Simulated scan of single mutants.
Amino acid sequence: MNTLMEPIKISDSEWEVMRVVWTKGKTDAKTINDLLSSSKGWKLATTKTLLGRLVKKDVLQTEQAGKKFVYSAKVTEEQTVRSATENIFSHICAKKVGSTIADMLEKAELTQEDIDSIEAILAEKVPVAEIACNCIPGQCICKEESNGGKAI
């Protein structure tokens, strides 16, 4: 698997295709389409278009097997999820990351194993005294509040 350092940015539909590829390991367009067409209403051409985009984005590789192409992932599901999470956090104030994680946990269904894993991570976490706002003035209220409520 590729160890990309660049952010992995894929659309919701591309996620659907990638989930099949991650599950199958190696697969062709028809197999992917057969699995997704009933729930997504896609035609084979749609699936092939999405596969082409994923190859262009360098997250899928392709090899020819007879008359068809076989696709396999160049990035892991874990890498892609981590990149998506980092992307979400890069779009919010650093001071809101903790409350965003708490909100995500509140909404998520978790097994006892999940909870134990999260608690173990939290037990090891060393809190910082303060988190600095990383926003441009006007993007959040932190800088507005620290300026006596006046816009900077």
Rank of each mutant, 00 (worst) to 15 (best):
50 L>K: 08
90 S>A: 06
12 D>F: 02
20 V>Q: 14
139 Q>I: 00
140 C>W: 00
111 T>H: 01
105 L>A: 09
8 I>R: 04
81 V>P: 01
138 G>T: 01
16 E>C: 10
58 D>Q: 15
18 M>K: 05
81 V>N: 14
80 T>G: 12
120 A>V: 03
8 I>W: 09
139 Q>A: 06
5 M>G: 12
12 D>R: 06
54 L>C: 12
118 I>K: 02
106 E>D: 08
26 K>R: 15
18 M>Q: 09
32 I>R: 13
110 L>N: 04
18 M>W: 11
90 S>M: 05
73 A>Q: 07
149 G>S: 08
23 T>G: 12
40 K>W: 01
22 W>I: 13
29 A>F: 02
5 M>E: 15
28 D>I: 02
148 G>P: 09
112 Q>D: 15
34 D>I: 10
102 A>D: 01
41 G>H: 02
118 I>W: 04
50 L>W: 08
115 I>P: 04
25 G>W: 04
35 L>I: 15
120 A>G: 13
44 L>M: 02
41 G>S: 01
127 P>R: 01
35 L>T: 14
4 L>M: 11
143 K>P: 00
4 L>P: 03
48 K>Y: 06
112 Q>A: 14
37 S>A: 15
43 K>T: 12
120 A>C: 06
55 V>W: 04
50 L>F: 12
128 V>M: 06
91 H>Q: 06
51 L>W: 00
66 G>N: 10
125 K>V: 08
15 W>D: 01
139 Q>D: 01
149 G>L: 03
